[in-house]
Design a protein around this nucleic acid. Structure first.
Lengths: 147, 147
DNA sequence: CTTGATGCAAAGGATTTGCACAAAT
DNA sequence: ATTTGTGCAAATCCTTTGCATCAAG
């Protein structure tokens, strides 16, 4: 955890950003939270430590620009998650329609298959694909069992 | 074209919606337009025929609820496209980062492969996948050639 | 010190809503 | 005639911005 934070701090400094109180807090938040967070949620988790909502937005921008976090949009809601340790161009998410949880599928087999599809598409249609975002929706295992 | 419009009209009526002036116009717009439209764009195309922006939004809701159109969100922009003739649970879109065009990949091979992935995911993770939305971004063939 | 970051309040843009009026069946 | 749909203006929600102040290096 501290090691990750230190790396991110180093990266931000290298890109010319100051490490302020609120950036420190937000970095830690994203490092220690596994969930995908909305700006509002980041604010809720950080406001008692003295961070304003505009600052949350501004620092989300900074973290996004520097590649520390990544934005995904599901049903018109924006979420952010730590991205720096997975500089992938391929993101596969599952969102449960019942509990709202979002999980990432990080599975080598699936990735491999998806890359094959990408190659096939580039060949077939001539478009150059730079990144892929897959959102699956349905009922997660837990809700399925309890529901 | 008229046949498609008639079918949609029938569907809406069956679901208890009146076919009003503005719904008629909007249906025709979605049927004859191949592009993905933003609410604002729908409004621009329809306003000279006397449709207000709130009505555009309200009727987009109706068309969405009845399955006539489908919403996709890319980079925080909402687009709508005709959906009734492709009741798919799988949508593959490509958006060009240069010209902004969005195209659908409707290719049997890709669909088949994606369904396989879905099955694999359901088996592996136990989640039940109801629909899949794939957004690829990059440079389209045309921009690639001219750029 | 000097530049960059923050808070606050206010502005902005997209979407939604209340309400009186108009149009559909 | 009755219900449903619409326009307008205003409200709402999320996000961004201007500006004076504060903090980081």
């Amino acid at each position: 955890m501290e090691k990750k934070v230190a790396e991110i701090v180093k990266l931000l400094k290298a890109k010319g950003y100051n490490i302020t109180h609120s950036r420190n807090i937000m970095i830690r938040l994203f490092v220690e939270t596994e969930k995908h967070l909305k700006p509002e949620e980041v604010y809720d988790l950080a406001k008692d430590q003295g961070i304003s909502l505009p600052t949350v937005y501004r620092n989300i921008d900074v973290l996004k620009k520097t590649g520390v976090i990544k934005e995904i949009t599901i049903n018109n809601d924006r979420f952010y998650e730590l991205h720096i340790y997975s500089q992938k161009k391929l993101h596969i998410h599952f969102r449960c329609n019942r509990c709202g949880n979002i999980r990432d599928y990080n599975n080598r087999n699936i990735f491999k298959k998806m890359i094959q599809q990408k190659d096939y598409i580039e060949e077939t249609f001539g478009d150059h694909v730079e990144d892929i975002s897959i959102v699956m929706r349905g009922i997660c295992r837990d809700c399925h069992e309890t529901g």
